[in-house]
C-alpha cells in the first residue's frame, strides 16, 4: 500500500517504508489526481500522517520550505491589511495632530500676548484667534495696551509659527474627512449613530469590528472608561456612566442628570449598529439615530 500526500513542496507518493516513490514538484489539483490514479494510493490517517511529516524533516527540503513559506507569509501580511488598520492609523494621526497643534498654539498665544495681551485674553477660540491675527489689519490694539511694540523683524517669526499651526488645523480636518469616508465604507451604521470619530475610537478600543459587534451594550457604554471602572471596583469611587461616547453631541448638550440614561440608550443603538455592520446588513443608521434623537434631544 502507498500513501499520497501534498504540501507546499509538491505531491508525493510514499510507500510503507516511508520512501518517496513518486512525486510532482509543482502541484496542481490535476497532478494529485493523476498520481492518485497511477498508484492507487490512499490518504494517510493521523498516525501515518505523522510518519510522513517525518519524511520531510530533512535538510534537503529546508531551502524550499524557507523560500515558499516566505512568499506565502508575505502574501498573508499583504492580505491582512483591512480598512480597520486604516481607521486605526487615521485616528492616531488625528490625535497626534491635535496634541501637536495644542502645544504649538499655547506657545503662539504666549508669544503673541507680548504684543497684544488684551485681544489674546478676550478670544478663547484658538482657530478664530489665529484666523484673525493672521489676517492683516483685522485685530486692533487697545489705546492703552499692556502690549509692547514689536518691530517687523520680531513679529515675523510669530506669524510664521501661526501659519504653520493653521496648516495643522487644515490637516486635521482633511484627515477627519478621510476618516469619515473609511468609516462609511467599513461600518456605515456605527458611523451614523456614534459619529465617525467616536465610532472609530470605539473600533480602535475594541481592536476590530468583529469584537465590537460581539460586545454587549453595557461594555460599549464604558469602553474607554476602564480606569474609572477599576477605581470604582477597588475603592468604591463613583461608577463611571460612560467612556468614549461622552463626546457624543447628545451627551454634550444634555444636563448631567440625564447622562446615565442617554448613555445607555446610545450604547444600545451602537451595539445594534455594530452587529448590522459586521454582518453586512442593510443601512438602518438613520432610523437608529432618529429614534435616539426623538427620545433624548432637548
Amino acid at each position: 500500500m502507498s500513501y499520497i500526500f501534498s504540501n507546499i513542496l509538491g505531491t508525493f507518493i510514499i510507500d510503507n517504508n516511508l520512501k518517496i516513490i513518486d512525486r510532482v514538484v509543482y502541484q496542481h489539483a490535476s497532478d494529485e489526481k493523476r498520481l492518485l490514479l497511477k498508484h492507487g494510493a490512499v490518504k494517510p490517517d493521523n498516525d501515518a500522517l505523522k510518519s510522513i511529516l517525518g519524511v520531510f524533516k530533512d535538510r534537503a527540503y529546508s531551502e524550499k520550505f524557507h523560500s515558499i513559506n516566505l512568499e506565502l507569509t508575505k502574501a498573508g501580511i499583504r492580505d491582512s491589511v483591512t480598512d480597520e488598520f486604516l481607521v486605526i492609523e487615521a485616528v492616531h494621526a488625528i490625535d497626534d495632530i491635535t496634541k501637536v497643534s495644542n502645544t504649538l498654539m499655547k506657545r503662539f498665544r504666549g508669544w503673541y500676548a507680548l504684543q497684544n495681551p488684551e485681544y489674546e485674553h478676550s478670544e478663547t477660540d484658538n482657530e478664530i484667534l489665529l484666523g484673525n491675527v493672521l489676517k492683516a489689519n483685522t485685530v486692533k490694539k487697545e489705546k492703552i495696551s499692556m502690549g509692547a511694540h514689536f518691530s517687523k523683524e520680531d513679529i515675523e517669526p510669530v506669524m510664521e509659527l501661526g501659519e504653520k499651526i493653521r496648516v495643522l488645523y487644515r490637516l486635521r480636518s482633511s484627515q477627519e474627512k478621510y476618516l469619515d469616508g473609511v468609516m462609511g465604507r467599513l461600518c456605515p451604521n456605527v458611523s451614523e449613530v456614534a459619529g465617525a470619530l467616536i465610532g472609530a475610537r470605539l473600533l480602535v478600543h475594541a481592536r476590530s469590528l468583529r469584537r465590537l459587534a460581539m460586545m454587549p451594550a453595557s461594555t460599549i457604554q464604558l469602553l474607554g472608561a476602564e480606569q474609572a471602572l477599576f477605581r470604582h471596583m477597588r475603592t468604591g469611587a463613583r461608577a463611571p456612566r460612560h467612556g468614549l461616547i461622552v463626546a457624543h453631541p447628545l451627551l454634550v448638550s444634555a444636563p448631567q442628570k440625564m447622562h446615565g440614561k442617554i448613555a445607555r440608550g446610545l450604547a444600545d443603538k451602537i451595539a445594534i449598529a455594530a452587529k448590522v455592520d459586521y454582518f453586512r446588513g442593510k443601512f438602518i443608521g438613520n432610523k437608529l439615530r432618529e429614534e435616539l434623537e426623538k427620545k433624548f434631544a432637548a
Binding site: L53, F56, N69, L72, T73
Partner: peptide
Amino acid sequence: NIVPVLADANMPETYRERISL
C-alpha cells in the same frame, strides 16, 4: 534557517502543508 509562517497556533491543521515534523 528561520521559516516564517503567518498562522494561528490554535489551528495546527492550517499549516500542515507548510512545515515538517
